[in-house]
Design a protein around this nucleic acid. Structure first.
Lengths: 233, 233
DNA sequence: ACCTGAACACCGTTCAAGT
DNA sequence: ACCTGAACACCGTTCAAGT
C-alpha cells in the first residue's frame, strides 16, 4: 500500500516531534520535572539522545513545548462551551487552568509561571491575557485600567494555582511517604503547637484549614478579586 | 589572647553554617539557582565538598535555609516600623516581599513559592500568614472567612511577585543579551503584530504596558483585593 | 568533632559517523 | 534527512581516611 512515498522526504523519518512531546508529558506526569531526562526519554522512545536533539533542540525548549501543548488544549476545550456572563467566563478560564495544573501537578505550575515571565509574547501568555482581558472590558472596568485589572486577575490565578500544586520537583517534604490527608493533619497539629501569644491568628484558623476545599477556596478568591474590580476608579 | 578555649568543642571548627549560607546567597544572587553548585561553594569557601554536607545536609536544604534567612530578615525590618492602619500594614508586608524578591530576583520567587507549598508549618509560611491574617481580622472580615481572605491575599502577592521576578533559572529567553527595556520593547512590538481580529484586547493594552511601573501595578492589585475583601459576606 | 578529596552514579549536550 | 551512541564536561552525594 504505502510503497510509493508522496513526500520528497527521505522517508526513514520514524520519530516525530509530537511523539517526543507526548512521551515527555508522560514522563513529567509520572515523576515531575526530575523524571524528564533525555536518557529516560530516548529509552522510552527507543532511540539515541541525538535523535531527540535533532527534533527538539533542547531540554528547556521541550519543557516549554510540553507546557504550551497542555495549556493550549485546556483552554481550547474550555472555549467550546457556550458564552455566558463575563464573570462566568473568567471563572471558566480560571478553572481550566486550575484543573490542568491539578492534573499535571508535579510540574505544570512552575513551568507555566516561568513561561509567562520569560515569554510574554508567546501563545500561552497571549491566550490567557486575551481570554481574561476581554471579559474585564465587558465587566465595565474603564479602559485605562484594563491592563492593571487583567494583570491582577492573572496574578491571583497563578499564585493560587501554584500554591495548590502539591510539592514540585522532588518529594523531600520531611517524609516522602505521606498522602494528602496526613500532610494536612501534620500541618494543623504543627500550627496548634505554635505559641498562642505570638501566633493568635494561626490558632484562630486551624479549624478552617482542616475541612476546606481547594477548588472552593479558589473560586472564593476569584469572587473577591472580581468584587474589587467593580470598585475600580 | 585566645590561647585557652572556653568551649568544649574540638576548636578546629573553622567553617560555620552562617558562612555557608551567606556564601550560598552570594552565589545565588550572582547567577541564579544554577550558580549554586556544591563545587562553586566549596571553592569560594576554600574547603572540600564534604565539609558543606557536614554542616548543611543537602543542596535542597541549603536553598530552603537561604530563602528562610532572606525572607525572615525582610519581614523583620518591616515590622520595626510603627503600626498604622490594617490596609497600610498589609501593604508593608506585601512590599517587603516584593522588594526582597526584586533584590534576589534570579532565584527567590520560585523558592519562596516552593517553601510555602511544601512546608506550611515552617517559619516562612507561618510568619507571612500571621502577619497578614491579623490585619484581615482588623479589617472587619467575618471570622469564618479569615482563612479564605488571607489565602486570597497571599496567593495574589505570590503570583504578582513571581511574575515580576525577571527570568529565573537561566537566561535563555530568546536573546541572552537583552536588558529590561529592550525586553519590554520586543514584547510590545510582538503584541502589535498579532492579528487584530483575534486579539483585540492585546492591541488595546499595548500602550498601557509600555509605560507601566511594576511596583505601582502591584499596589493597585493589592488595593483591588482589599476592596473585594470589604464586600465579603 | 570537623574536614579532605577521590569515587560513584548520574546529568545535558555535541558530534563524527552511519543510512 | 534522519538517526546512532560514544565522549565531554559537568552535576550532587557519599565515605574512608585524616587531624
Amino acid at each position: 500500500m504505502a510503497t510509493r512515498d508522496r513526500r520528497p522526504q527521505r522517508r526513514n523519518q520514524v520519530l516525530s516531534r509530537e511523539q517526543i512531546i507526548d512521551a515527555a508529558i508522560g514522563l513529567l506526569d509520572s515523576g515531575g520535572e526530575g523524571a524528564l531526562t533525555v536518557r529516560a526519554l530516548s529509552e522510552r522512545l527507543a532511540t539515541g539522545s541525538g535523535a531527540i536533539y535533532y527534533h527538539v533542540g533542547n531540554r528547556d525548549q521541550l519543557l516549554d513545548t510540553a507546557t504550551e501543548t497542555v495549556i493550549t488544549s485546556a483552554l481550547e476545550t474550555e472555549s467550546s462551551q457556550a458564552v455566558a456572563t463575563p464573570e462566568e467566563e473568567i471563572r471558566r478560564v480560571a478553572l481550566a487552568l486550575f484543573d490542568a495544573i491539578a492534573e499535571h501537578h508535579q510540574w505544570l505550575a512552575t513551568r507555566l509561571t516561568l513561561q509567562i515571565v520569560r515569554n510574554p509574547a508567546g501563545p500561552v501568555t497571549v491566550e490567557i491575557f486575551e481570554r481574561i482581558g476581554r471579559q474585564v472590558g465587558a465587566l465595565g472596568v474603564p479602559r485605562a485600567s484594563w491592563f492593571d485589572a487583567t494583570s491582577t486577575l492573572v496574578h491571583y490565578i497563578l499564585g493560587a494555582v501554584s500554591q495548590n500544586a502539591r510539592m514540585d520537583g522532588d518529594t523531600s517534604g520531611i517524609q516522602p511517604d505521606m498522602d494528602r490527608e496526613e500532610f494536612f493533619d501534620a500541618t494543623s497539629t504543627a500550627w496548634q503547637e505554635l505559641d498562642p501569644e505570638n501566633y493568635p491568628f494561626m490558632h484562630a484558623i486551624v479549624g478552617q484549614t482542616k475541612q476546606h476545599d481547594d477548588r472552593d477556596q479558589f473560586l472564593t478568591g476569584i469572587a473577591i478579586v472580581l468584587a474589587g474590580l467593580t470598585h475600580l476608579r
